[in-house]
Design a protein around this nucleic acid. Structure first.
Lengths: 158, 158
DNA sequence: ATATATGCAAAGTCTTTGCAATTCG
DNA sequence: CGAATTGCAAAGACTTTGCATATAT
């Protein structure tokens, strides 16, 4: 919690009761709540909290890397007809997703099935998501100088 | 394409021009389009196609495993304050996401950075998504007898 | 004091649903 | 022909935005 406050200060973000409550709640669960679930939960102790503030806060905290979306693939539905095992390079800057087929990555995830079984989980498949910056975005250079976390939940549409 | 038709027939899904066009388009790209992007694209050759049909079709095709959402994590935004490297067991039946920390998976995914670099991609991290059925859903038993693909894009909210 | 953040309400975007007309098997 | 599918329009769900008020530093 202290680290969180320090992080906010360092980034120039005001430390408000709302942000503290939202972060505390998110840090206390591993259930990967949605904005609405967080809102409902935090609201019990802070009944005036608005849903809009939850959205704004998550965005702000993701921006400083204090929090992150569960998947880097963005919040919108995207579809694939490629049923072969393959993995994804997800650009956290522009949001493009590039397929990669790499047998070594297959082997890599092999311990996964055993791991899953230990949780009583019946694994049907897996996929590896590698996130970072694509060639095009690297070429474009970073705009700012402050550390980039690029934790936004969605990206501009193509 | 023949395989697709066979798959529909086998599953008892009617083979309509709309479904053919949507599948053909999706199979022809690796850009992981959204429903709206597909609609726009297919519409050029089939101007009467409605967006609602695209949604219904993707859902139907995912149900027979002919198509799948890019991520099994669902289309809604979910958040995480756990910044430690960890992976996810995603239940394709109820949609719950369980964290797993497994050092061996870390090591195993090491070829990822090199792989990404070969694509001009600057990897910042990765995560492994293992999908299947969680213990609770296995206990609940399958309802039907036909093959389950459970490719739906979203799950009922908790 | 002043720049930021909050809360509200309205607007915007994405997705689902109900239903009559149409099409597939 | 009977069941399934389509297109439309309306409803629903989720997220963002503008702005006046309140708050953090």
């Amino acid at each position: 919690m202290d680290a969180f406050v320090a992080r906010c200060r360092k980034a120039g973000l005001a430390v408000t009761p709302q942000r503290l409550a939202i972060f505390r709640r998110l840090a206390a669960t591993d259930r990967h709540p949605s904005a609405e679930e967080l809102h409902a939960a935090v609201r019990r102790e802070m009944p005036t909290l608005s849903l809009a503030t939850v959205y704004k806060t998550l965005d702000a905290l993701a921006g400083i890397g204090a929090v992150r979306p569960v998947s880097r693939l963005g919040a919108r539905g995207r579809w694939d007809a490629n049923l072969e095992p393959h993995h994804h390079l997800v650009c956290t800057s522009c949001g493009t997703v590039t397929d990669v087929a790499e047998p070594r990555l297959e082997a890599a995830a092999r311990p996964a099935a055993a791991l899953a079984a230990r949780h009583g989980f019946e694994a049907a498949g897996h996929s590896v998501e590698i996130f970072g910056r694509c060639a095009a975005c690297r070429g474009r250079r970073r705009t700012g100088s402050s550390p980039q976390h690029e934790g936004r939940a969605t990206w501009p549409r193509r």
